[in-house]
Design a protein around this nucleic acid. Structure first.
Lengths: 218, 218, 218, 218
DNA sequence: GATGAATGAGTGTTCATTCAT
DNA sequence: AATGAATGAACACTCATTCAT
C-alpha cells in the first residue's frame, strides 16, 4: 500500500527538480520519467498532461496562499471602509492602525511563503509557459481592492468615484509593490526569521511611501 | 548593396514581431524566415544563432540604457560621497537635493524607455530563455552602488563598513524598486507624457519610502 | 451475479458508442473503460482484446445474417438447378419465378437488417481495421454461387463449365450489386417500411439489369 | 539538379508503398522515411504533414478525374434537358442515345482509371482517415444531377418538381451504382482492355436496370 | 471480478542548426 | 548573399496490453 504510491511520489519529486532547474517550458517529461525510473506511460497514468503534473505540484500551496490573501485583505477592506468620510487626522491614525494590521497579515503571509518556499519559488520564477504564469498579477488584483479603500479613506474622499486616473495608477503600483515585497522576501531571504526581520524595514519603506503619496502635492 | 541590407532588415523586423508575440523561447526561427520570405540559411548568414538574432534586436537599445544609468548614477555617486561625515540635517538636505537630481535622471530614463518602447518591452517581458532574461537584475546592480552611497550619507555613517546585513538588504530592495518603477511605467503607460506624469507620484512614494526606512527604529 | 454481468453489459454499451463514433481503428479502449467507469483491466477480464470486444458486439447479428443468406440462397440454388438444360422460355419463366422468390428473401434480409440496424451499421461502415472489414465481400461470395446457377439456367447453358471469364465477371458484379442494394438500404433508409418500399424499385432495377445482361449481344 | 529531387521522389515512392500496404491511418511516416533513407525532418521539408504527403500522391490524378466527370456529365446534362416534355417513345430513343454517349464517356473514365490505377486504388481503398475518404460519395453527387435530368426526361415529367421521394432515392442509387461500376472495374480488372470488355456487360446491366425502373409499376 | 500500476513501442510533429552549392 | 536540402534529437502524448494483487 505504501510503495504503491511510491511511483507517484517519485514522479512528483523528479518533476519538482526538473521544473525548478529548467522552468516549466524547458522541462522535459521524458527526463522526469527517466530520473524517476519509469516510462512516460506511467506518468500519464497519474497525470493528465504536463500542466496537470505542474498543477499537482503547486495547487495546494497556491490554494492556501489564495485563501490567506483573500480572507485577510477582504476582512480588512470592510473594516477600513468605515473610515471613509472622517477627518484627515483620524483617518491617518486609523491608517496607522491599518498598517499595523497589515504588518500582522504580512507576517502571516511570509510565514506561509517560507513554509512552502520551494513551491513558491516554482510558482514565482519557474512557471512561465504554464497557466500559472500570471500568479503575481492575480494576487495584485486581490490586494488592489483593499488598498483602494485605504487610499480613499486616507485621502478623505467620500467615495471611490473621486478617484482620478492618477490615483488608480498609484494604487495599482502600491499593490504591485506590496506583492513584490512578499516575492522579494520569498526569493531573497533564506528563512522565515530573516524574512520577518527584513520585512520590518520594507514595511517602513512602504508606509513611508504611502505617506509620501498621500501628501504629494504635484 | 542596398537590397543586401534589405534582407537583414526584413529579418530583424519579422524577428521583432515573432519574439514580441511568442517570447524568446517559443519564437520559431523557421517562422521568422518564412515571414521574411527567405530560407533559414539566409538567417544564419547574418546571425550566428537565435541568441545573436535577439541580441541584434536589442543590443543598441540596451547599450544606450546601460550608458544612461551607468553614467548618471555613477556621477551622482561621487557627488553624494562628499556628504559622508556631515551632520544629519545637512545630509537630509543634500539627500533632498539628491532626489531632485534623481528625478531629473529618472525623467531621462523614462524618455529613453519610451523612445525605444518596443525593444524595452521585448527585453522586459519577452526575453525569458535568452541571455538577457536577467536584465532587470543587472540594472539593479548598477543602481545599487549609487544608493549605497546615498544611504550611508543619510544614515550619517562614516563608511560603508558600518552597513549591516539589514542595511544591505533594504538598499538592494530600494534599488530593485527603483528599477521596478521604470519597468512599471514602461509597461503600464502608453506614452512618455503619461509616464512622466505618473512618475511624480511614484517618486513621491519612493522618497517617502526612503525617509520611512532612514527613520525606522525597529 | 447480476452486477457481474452489469459490467460486461456496460462495457459493451460503451464500446458500441465508441466504435460507432470513431470507427474500429480510432476507437480507444481507454475511453470505453473510462466511460463505463471501470479500469482497462476489467475489460481484459471479459474480452481477449480489441478485436474480441468488437466481435462480441457483432457476432450474434453477423451469425444470424449469415444464416439467413446462406440458408435461403442455398435452398434456392438447388431449386434453380433443375432448370439447367431446359429451353430458354421455360428458363425465363422460371427465372421470373426466381426473382419473385428473391424478392421474398430480400424482404426477409431487410427486415433483419433493420432489426439490428445499429450493429449492421457498425459492421458495414465502422469495421475497417478489424477482421470484419471484408464482410460485404464474404456475403457476396455466398450469393455468388446461387447467382451462378441462375445465370447458367437463364443463359441455357448445360453446365457451369461453359461459363466464360466474362460470364463469371458479370455474375460477380451482380452478386456484389445485390449485396450493395442491401447495404444501401440499410445505410440510407431510416426504417424498415421505407426500406421495403425503396427495395421495390431497386429490385426492378436489378431484374432489368439481369435481362439486360442475359440478352446482351456484345 | 537531378538528384536534388531524388529525395522527394524517393519519399513519394516509399509513401506510396506504405499507404498502399497499410492504408492512410496505419501508415507510419517514420517507416516511410526509414525506407527512403532519410530522417523525418527531411520529410517535413517537402511536405507539410501526413495529409499533405498523401495529397501530393493523389492530387493530380484526383483533379483529372474530377475534370473528366464534371465536364462530360455536365455537358450531357444540358443536352438531355431538351428532352423534357417530349413524348415517351422519343424520350426513350433519346435515352438510348444518351446511354451510347454515356458508354463513350465511361470508356474515357475507365481508360483514365487504368492509366492511374495505383493512385486510384489508393484513393478508393486506402484513404480512410484522410480528407479523401469520401471520394466516391463526391463523385456520386456529380453524376446524380445528370441522372436526375435523364430520369425526368425518360419518365416524361415536365419538371424536377414532380420527383417523389422514391424517384430521388432510386436516382441516387443508380448514380451510386454507376460510380460503383467504375470502382469495380478499377479494382477487379487487371488492365484497361479487360476493363473495357467487362464494361460492356455492366453497361448492359445498367441500361436494363434503368428500363426496369422506368417501367416499374409498383 | 476488477483494480491500480506500468510497460514499451509508437504517433505525428517541431526545433535550431549545418552545409554544399 | 542566399538557397535547398537535410540532420538528429527532441517534443508531448497515446496506444493496446499485461499482471500482481
Amino acid at each position: 500500500m505504501e510503495n504503491e504510491k511510491e511511483t507517484k511520489k517519485k514522479l512528483l519529486e523528479c518533476a519538482m527538480k526538473e521544473f525548478s532547474e529548467k522552468g516549466y517550458m524547458k522541462a522535459s517529461l521524458r527526463n522526469i520519467c527517466k530520473e524517476a525510473g519509469v516510462t512516460t506511460g506511467a506518468l500519464y497514468f497519474f497525470f493528465k498532461d504536463k500542466e496537470d503534473l505542474f498543477g499537482n505540484l503547486v495547487a495546494e500551496t497556491l490554494y492556501g496562499l489564495d485563501t490567506i490573501i483573500e480572507n485577510h485583505f477582504i476582512e480588512e477592506t470592510t473594516a477600513t471602509k468605515a473610515l471613509a468620510g472622517g477627518d484627515m487626522s483620524v483617518a491617518a491614525l486609523a491608517a496607522a492602525q491599518g498598517f499595523d494590521d497589515d504588518m500582522e497579515i504580512a507576517r502571516g503571509v511570509i510565514r506561509y511563503l517560507f513554509k512552502h518556499k520551494e513551491i513558491i519559488d516554482l510558482l514565482l520564477t519557474k512557471s512561465q509557459g504554464s497557466c500559472y504564469e500570471n500568479l503575481p498579477d492575480q494576487m495584485v488584483s486581490k490586494v488592489e481592492e483593499h488598498y483602494t479603500s485605504m487610499y480613499v479613506a486616507m485621502k478623505g474622499y467620500k467615495s471611490k468615484r473621486k478617484l482620478t486616473k492618477e490615483d488608480k495608477f498609484i494604487i495599482h503600483w502600491m499593490s504591485h509593490d506590496q506583492i513584490d515585497i512578499f516575492i522579494h522576501i520569498a526569493t531573497h531571504c533564506k528563512n522565515v526569521n530573516e524574512g520577518e526581520k527584513q520585512m520590518k524595514n520594507m514595511m517602513a519603506y512602504m508606509i513611508g511611501g504611502w505617506y509620501g503619496v498621500i501628501n504629494n502635492k504635484y
